[in-house]
């Protein structure tokens, strides 16, 4: 049975030392730090300096979206998605492994579909010049980041092997 494990065993632990993993993790950490910073600048600015940070709302939205999609491949690599293998123990080991692979493939298909739709959204946004209302930040890069994140996560889940 696996819960939202924090990479406590097997594959997850070794992946946590991989270069790409550490790089994405560092970016995610930076994004969390920026989220905190934006709130602090806004709140402190408005009380101490009477100068609120008009873009705080939008910046929070965009940092949050970036964080979620930067972290998604990490969660996928950790085997951190909530899943239930309760019924699996009823089956012999080879069947269990097969079902585990199948579940990985099914998840990968869902993520690949997400990726494709996000690319379409991004292309639409390039064409329409979609940007945020106050800071005028273009939205398309966020859609492409999300698409890339889903593609990488799909790849990871496709390669998922059962822990020995």
């Amino acid at each position: 049975m696996t819960g939202p494990a924090a990479g406590t065993g097997g594959q997850g632990a070794s992946r946590r030392h991989a270069g790409w993993y550490r790089a994405l993790a560092a970016i995610a950490a930076l994004l969390i730090g920026l989220l905190i910073l934006v709130t602090c600048i806004d709140v402190i600015g408005r009380y101490l300096l009477n100068r609120p940070f008009g873009g705080a709302y939008e910046l929070t939205q965009m940092l949050l979206a970036a964080l979620v999609f930067v972290a998604l491949p990490l969660t996928s690599a950790d085997g951190g998605h909530v899943e239930v293998d309760l019924a699996l123990h009823l089956f012999p080991a080879p069947v269990q492994r097969l079902l585990g692979r199948l579940a990985g493939i099914v998840s990968a298909v869902a993520l690949a579909f997400f990726c494709w739709r996000l690319v379409l959204i991004g292309l639409d946004q390039v064409e329409d010049g979609t940007r945020s209302a106050s800071l005028m930040i273009p939205m398309a890069p966020l859609a492409f980041l999300a698409a890339a994140s889903c593609a990488v996560s799909a790849f990871i889940l496709l390669l998922r092997r059962e822990d020995p």
Binding site: D128, G129, T130, M136
Partner: peptide, 8 residues
């Protein structure tokens, strides 16, 4: 119309 900020 002002929901999205774009050229549309």
């Amino acid at each position: 119309h002002s929901f999205t900020e774009d050229d549309r």
